[in-house]
Design a protein around this nucleic acid. Structure first.
Lengths: 185, 185
DNA sequence: CAATAAATAGATAGATCTATCTATTTTTAA
DNA sequence: TTAAAAATAGATAGATCTATCTATTTATTG
């Protein structure tokens, strides 16, 4: 028999989908409880407010990002391979989400700099990605431009290309980064 | 005597500030009319709906972007100088706005891909910037990586760095792009 | 000056939103 | 089996939001 998904998870799954695709402000509590098919009381039992649900959503995204990437990059042994897997991972993310962009960037764009908790969460997430890239470049056998500078700017390129894919609705920009990097390394 | 600012312009100026800083969904009509100190009837005389006000806001941003850049880059004669002025311009934009990011990217992040008119407006704006960069690189005396590829990826870097400045609240990322480009060119 | 247009104040419709509450039923565990 | 916990339905408070409307005043222009 089918494993029954717990109420809390149903809420979080639906909220994740809607916050990401529609945006936080454009998603109402009523839509969440309707699509999750749960009672409004249950929602407020698990999450004291919509803001708490937002935090849970982002914490889940943070956790799942690194888990998913670890799985995706399995088999990449050299630092060079890992770097390219990083780009490919973000290409795939955009493809499966129909070019919805990065949930962390989206939420900062939407809420601005007022909400400090959210802001710090996003900052920490992006830093972790950048540091990860830096460590691979450090291990890389390469004599050219300063490797840390290269890592930082590759990260920026990928960030910009991710935005660009949501605007153009295709992977062109991220492919362009790959092409550029192949010429450099 | 002081030139009286027309009602329509007062509305648009206030809306511009609020849409940009607070976000579109987080700015209500009532706040706009209060800060612009005009009657609600006047607003709906000039703009049939909040959505029309949004369009006017973006069209104004588009127009002002290129006018402001033209002024900012006056005196830059070589393509190389123009390219660096482009980065410096975007650094200055972020500094004067207290790292609020790019209004075009923000609105896409907020509204998603549903609103086709807005989406196309943003796409056209970003394309114009990219094409501008491409033309300077084309004129550039440089023998290295494919110049169009370089232009496209510099643009992506700057886009990513702009996002990054709103997250870190400093110009580090954009400065890093400059440093990287100095090594390349 | 007179006629037209533009702006104002302010009430209000009507929808939507977050959150709370009560009363009841279902599920879980001891 | 029984007591406690979790989930449900559904009403509703109370705030907020976009937009419309009326009635009046202020500016503009021929």
């Amino acid at each position: 028999m089918a494993e029954k998904i717990k109420v809390r998870d149903r809420i979080l799954n639906v909220a994740t989908d809607l916050f990401y695709r529609q945006g936080y402000n454009q998603t109402g509590i009523n839509q969440i409880i309707a699509e999750a098919d749960i009672a409004i009381g249950s929602l407020y039992n698990h999450f004291p407010s919509k803001g708490d649900l937002l935090v849970a959503y982002l914490e889940k995204q943070e956790e799942e990002w690194f888990a998913a990437f670890e799985h995706f990059s399995k088999g990449a042994n050299t630092p060079r391979e890992k770097i390219f897997r990083f780009i490919d991972f973000r290409i795939e993310q955009q493809q499966v989400s129909a070019f919805c962009g990065c949930p962390f960037i989206k939420i900062v764009a939407e809420l601005g700099q007022d909400d400090d908790k959210i802001h710090k969460l996003v900052e920490a997430h992006k830093d972790k990605q950048r540091v990860m890239l830096q460590s691979w470049f450090k291990q890389l056998d390469y004599e050219g431009i300063d490797k840390k500078l290269l890592a930082d700017n590759l990260f920026l390129m990928v960030e910009g290309a991710t935005i660009s894919t949501t605007i153009s609705r295709n992977t062109q920009a991220l492919e362009s980064v790959k092409k550029f990097l192949r010429k450099l390394l």
